[in-house]
């Protein structure tokens, strides 16, 4: 029996395809390297021109780029970022997880067919719309609720930013977690029901542990998203860099500081202009740390099913 010869060009095509795929993967690596390089170079320039030390920047508690001499402490905006990340997570993680459990374990097929796409639609709303939502709805409601108690709610306030960013990241948590939970094998559920478990026990003691790594990954993704959120926070929380525990006053986050510098009239090459790169690099570091933490968590909690 004779087989037809494999044409030469097929082998070329094969190696061409693999080279192309490699290039595509490499683009993302290159981008990351590029970002770090640009941020790094400009950050060095910032420290030279502003004539401040790294500790003044990292641990400085006052951020006044227009003062004389200017003060570039990053702590107030790091604080603001953390307030928004923690506050919005406190809203989004429980609600998102509970809705994921509801959707995957409790919801009748029809309810699920309507609810899931609706939740995912929330994720598609432009973030600036959430900002308006904060300004026009959330803050007035907060005022109506809290001012009778004698609390002063500023027009721009952290709480309202936490609420809208929280709502904004709920779909990230619920949608990803739901995917993970509903892909837990049916056999595990049947085994648990067969031992006389209630639906609640099956959900919380079999399905959730089996899908835990994916659920935690969705949490981290949502938190990273909250850390990086910009426009909604600008509109909701304003731009006052301060270290405060009062969520009813205006704050500034790292991202909104960058917006402020870019939107202002800082001219190219000045310390104020260059500071945005230093802040950008810090933001990058924060996200990197979150990613590393999530990697560690995943390795620790892995309860893999085949």
């Amino acid at each position: 029996m004779r087989w037809p010869r494999r044409p030469r060009y097929l082998a070329w095509l094969e190696s061409g395809v693999s080279a192309l795929l490699f290039l595509c993967a490499f683009v993302t690596v290159l981008t990351t390297i590029g970002i770090v390089a640009v941020l790094g170079v400009q950050t060095v320039g910032f420290f030279r021109i502003a004539r401040i030390g790294i500790t003044d920047f990292l641990f400085g508690v006052v951020l006044k780029p227009d003062a004389r001499p200017p003060l570039f402490g990053v702590v107030p905006i790091f604080w603001g970022t953390m307030i928004v990340a923690i506050g919005s997570s406190m809203i989004a993680l429980p609600i998102g997880l509970l809705s994921a459990i509801y959707l995957s374990e409790y919801a009748p097929r029809k309810a699920r067919a309507i609810l899931k796409p609706t939740l995912e639609l929330l994720a598609g709303v432009p973030t600036i719309v959430y900002g308006y939502f904060a300004l026009m709805l959330v803050t007035p409601v907060l005022r109506a609720l809290l001012e009778p108690l004698g609390l002063r709610v500023e027009t721009f306030n952290a709480l309202s930013a936490c609420v809208v960013v929280g709502v904004m990241i709920i779909p990230l948590v619920s949608s990803l977690s739901e995917d993970v939970l509903s892909s837990v094998p049916r056999g595990l559920r049947e085994a648990a029901y067969g031992l006389g478990a209630t639906k609640f026990e099956v959900s919380t003691r079999v399905v959730l542990p089996a899908g835990l790594s994916g659920v935690l990954a969705s949490f981290i993704l949502a938190i990273s998203r909250a850390v990086g959120e910009t426009m909604a926070v600008v509109l909701a929380a304003g731009m006052r860099p301060q270290i405060t525990l009062n969520p009813l006053t205006s704050i500034e986050t790292m991202t909104t500081y960058i917006v402020q510098v870019i939107g202002g009239e800082a001219s190219y090459g000045t310390a104020k202009y260059l500071s945005l790169f230093a802040v950008g690099l810090s933001l990058f570091a924060v996200t990197l740390v979150l990613n590393i933490i999530s990697g560690l968590i995943l390795r620790h909690f892995r309860e893999a099913y085949q």
């Binding site: 094998p185 056999g187 049947e190 085994a191 067969g194 031992l195 006389g196």
Partner: peptide, 16 residues
Amino acid sequence: RRRIGMVFQKPNPFPK
């Protein structure tokens, strides 16, 4: 189901 146990076709131990 606590009084009537079940063993399934495909072994399905929990990932524990």
